[in-house]
Simulated assay, not measured.
Amino acid sequence: MPTYLPTIVILSAAVLAILVVLYRLYDSRVEQPKKLEDELREGLTDADGRRYKADVMALEPVRKAAAASSYEGNRVIIVRNFGKVPHKPYTMHELLGIEVFVDDRVVGRVVRGGPAKLLDDIAPVVNRVTMRLIFDDPADPDFELVMWDPHDNLTARAEGPRAAMNNARKWFYHVEAVLRRTATSPAPKPAPVSGPPPAPAPLPQV
């Protein structure tokens, strides 16, 4: 056996391992976020094909989750376990509140009809940022999204804890404004359900 053959095998295995790592990074940092954004855009498009712009958006490619909100479009889109569970839309009146956690500590909370806790000043060191949206939905009353976790920094598209905190702050004040506005406006009435057609009038007797 040629003496250089083991070297070629080792180099080939190393190159293959590098290619696998690069593919995983590309898939998690480019492909998965793009697919999540496409899913959110689909949810923000109405039946007439009009697409509403998201006021706030958050992606979590590692856990295949995402969220977007458009006040103009009157909808909040939630993506859980992308590829297995379809996105779920909510109206602004179904949005009940938001909580922001930093290192498992609640630093901000606003709930419809309840006491609010404004966002605290955050210490320079932030290890984990999470937000929880609360809905009027007995089946899925809340949705938790990890916006930054140091263990995800090689795969998630987050730009760092401070960027994640800034995005959480945007979400917090967006939800606060939505709750304030929808508190003074009535919820839209559901469309009437059409019943069966009326029975024909009986024919006159001769």
Rank of each mutant, 00 (worst) to 15 (best):
V111C: 13
E176Y: 05
S70E: 04
S69V: 13
A66M: 06
V56I: 02
E159Q: 12
P138N: 05
R180F: 07
M131G: 02
D121P: 04
G113P: 09
V126T: 10
R157T: 07
V107E: 00
V175G: 11
A177F: 06
V76D: 01
P161L: 12
G160H: 10
F143W: 11
T184C: 12
L95T: 06
F143S: 04
E72C: 11
D142A: 14
E94S: 00
S185G: 07
V106F: 15
P89R: 10
D149A: 14
V129Q: 05
A68C: 06
N166P: 12
S70V: 11
V110S: 09
T184S: 14
S69T: 08
D142N: 15
A158I: 05
N153S: 10
E72S: 08
D136T: 05
L96P: 02
R180E: 00
Y90G: 06
F135H: 01
R180G: 07
P186N: 11
V107N: 01
I122H: 02
G113A: 02
K84P: 09
P89E: 11
P138Q: 01
R157F: 08
E72H: 15
L145D: 04
A68Y: 03
R128W: 03
M131W: 05
D149F: 13
A163G: 07
A65R: 08
L179N: 09
D103I: 14
M92A: 06
R80T: 13
M92I: 10
L145W: 02
K84S: 06
L119I: 09
